[in-house]
Design a protein around this nucleic acid. Structure first.
Lengths: 205, 205
DNA sequence: TATTTTAATGAACAAGTGTTTAATTAGTAC
DNA sequence: GTACTAATTAAACACTTGTTCATTAAAATA
């Protein structure tokens, strides 16, 4: 009676064949250079079958992401799944699971990180957000074992993250409020004096 | 004698026409649905001219990004351009310039943020990195005016940023070291006890 | 201004795209 | 096992793609 959903074994088989072929082709070349015809030939399917199950090449990756995300969530929750409380000091085990998850899906993550438009822009923004304070400013941060590269990466992406969210919610806050919040978060974290380096000339771009 | 570079007025004109048309078309539909033929028709150019100047549709955006990035860097540096030192408390003016820059290029940022593959995955990862602690954990953070939504956004993107960098550098650190560093950065920022909420069932995904 | 250089053009090419059709085949449900 | 349902298939469609080549026209140089 029921079940005209995606539980049909034929759909599963076709999708799996397409996904597998696509991942293989992604190892060889850029997503933009992979043709639908190539994919279905590699998957040994009719071209129409692709269009029955997907609209764009990119939709294939969407489905692959589903599997990875399921494992991501499991990894994140694992450390506290059977606990009732834990201190932030115990967070090691929690975060280590995320990084292990990424390491486990190394190939997928490497492929996915190498794609597309937005990512290019994100890289550039983050590059500047990292480079500018490192180049222009001299932090008084000392006597910690913090990896300064990773720390500035952390902050660059954090700021860009706030911007992304702001854009996505349709600029519902004023630039002033966004700045205020960033300042509060930064001050909450640390409140050190920064000295501008005089070695480089900040006038130049 | 020299100058077989891109200073030819024809190149500039063609590129500008293509960029303008592309941005207009992007207001209407997804990048994947825009055809090269459409772009050159709108720009009133021969299709070959597109291929003289670009390889992919996405390359058009790369050039548009150049202009935006120049302004971004200027905005970032403006507050301390003529100073020698400043305290982190004065950072307000610095960060506010970034957010004002984004607000000034509202249309561009909104278009660019809505595109492509990696971005989809980033959204999902960040969504989980925000949702999981908010849903599973109960923070003891109080008596601050910090916007909890923005704060968790900040942290989600920060963690993902570290992961991106790690991937990009070819997994040159161990998952353990990455976790250590994240812990150090987090502890450096705050060191509060977290209590797991009992309202939701963390077993469910 | 005349000369040289080089970008833009239009036409033509094989191959890929996205969609539709009717026929076939595999899966589900009884 | 049979009947019904729905996915896959092959063929055909107009259109887009990426490339090449000879021709035209605009810009840089002297």
């Amino acid at each position: 009676m029921c079940k005209h959903n995606s539980s049909d074994r034929r759909i599963k088989k076709s999708k799996k064949a397409i996904k597998d072929s696509f991942l293989l082709l992604m190892q060889e070349k850029d997503v933009r250079e992979i043709t639908i015809t190539e994919i279905v030939k590699a998957a040994d399917l009719n071209r129409g079958t692709f269009y029955n199950n997907f609209q764009f090449k990119e939709d294939i990756l969407d489905e692959i992401m589903d599997d990875v995300m399921k494992d991501f969530i499991l990894s994140y929750r694992e450390p506290y799944q059977h606990k009732e409380t834990f201190n932030i000091k115990d967070l090691t085990s929690s975060t280590i699971k995320i990084f292990k998850h990424v390491a486990a899906h190394k190939n997928f993550y490497t492929l996915i990180v190498k794609s597309t438009v937005w990512y290019t822009f994100q890289l550039r923004i983050c590059h500047e957000l990292k480079r500018l304070p490192l180049q222009d400013l001299m932090d008084s941060k000392q006597n910690t074992t913090i990896n300064i590269e990773l720390f500035s990466t952390y902050q660059a992406h954090a700021i860009l993250g706030m911007i992304i969210e702001w854009i996505h919610d349709g600029f519902n806050y004023s630039p002033e409020y966004m700045a205020e919040q960033l300042i509060e978060i930064l001050n909450y974290n640390h409140g050190q004096t920064i000295v501008i380096k005089q070695t480089d000339n900040p006038e130049q771009i």
